[in-house]
Amino acid sequence: MTELRLIRTYHPDGTNGVLQHDGKPICQTIELPWRNNRRMISCIPEGRYRLIRREHFKHGDQLAVSGVPGREAILIHPANFALSELQGCIAPVTKVIAPGKGVFSRVALERLKDIAYPALEAGEEVWLTIVQEGVL
């Protein structure tokens, strides 16, 4: 089993995070602000979710976040501006430059896929735990 951890910091204009594997950073992340888990305008709730591979018509072969309460089709895909490019999904970025904004998203996504895809291809489960910074 592969365990990933996303440690979030919330801001009015976006949610930023650090994605880790075995306690080491893989990349940073951007998401929409927390808006009570409302579809299309909010990041997803904190919790533990299974990641699966999914073919998306726009983004191709992607990681999907399954089991999100009241939500579906949550992907991890490239984006550099949460408010204009995300609808509840998670975007890995190489560096966060402001709340909900980052750079070099495709590079960061490849780093994540280099960890998740071999595990999934080997039949392992991949899990993502999302927590707020400073909260255990």
Rank of each mutant, 00 (worst) to 15 (best):
F81C: 09
D22R: 12
L86T: 12
I44N: 14
L63A: 12
A108T: 04
R38F: 00
Q20W: 01
V126P: 01
I7W: 00
R48D: 00
V103D: 11
S105A: 13
V93R: 04
A73S: 15
E3C: 04
P33H: 12
V131C: 01
E124N: 13
F104K: 14
R111V: 01
T9N: 15
A122F: 02
I30A: 11
L109R: 04
V18Y: 00
I52N: 14
V96Y: 10
K95Q: 13
E110W: 12
L112Y: 02
V107S: 14
A98M: 08
H59I: 02
K24C: 03
S105G: 07
H59V: 02
L83N: 15
H11I: 05
N37L: 11
G67I: 03
A79P: 02
L4K: 10
L112F: 06
R106H: 11
A79L: 09
G134R: 00
K113I: 04
W127M: 14
T29W: 05
G17C: 05
I41L: 05
P92L: 00
G23Q: 04
I44H: 13
A116C: 15
L120F: 13
R38W: 03
V131A: 04
P25V: 01
V68I: 09
E31N: 07
G17N: 02
R48A: 15
Q20H: 08
G67H: 04
P12W: 03
L120V: 06
S84H: 09
L136C: 06
D22T: 08
L120T: 05
P33V: 10
K101C: 13
I130E: 02
L19D: 01
T129I: 05
A116S: 15
T15A: 06
G60T: 08
Q87W: 01
I26E: 10
A119V: 01
K113N: 12
L120G: 06
E110Y: 05
G100P: 10
L4G: 06
E133H: 07
L128K: 08
G88M: 03
P78S: 13
L32F: 05
V68C: 12
Q62D: 10
C89K: 03
A91N: 05
P99T: 00
P99K: 07
V96S: 11
A116H: 09
K101H: 15
T94N: 13
A82M: 09
C27Q: 02
G17K: 10
D22V: 03
E3P: 00
A119K: 11
Y10E: 11
G67R: 06
I76Q: 04
K58Q: 11
V65D: 05
T94P: 02
Q28L: 03
D13G: 07
V68K: 06
P33M: 07
E110K: 13
G100A: 09
N16R: 06
T29K: 09
D22C: 10
S66I: 12
G17V: 05
K95F: 03
V126W: 09
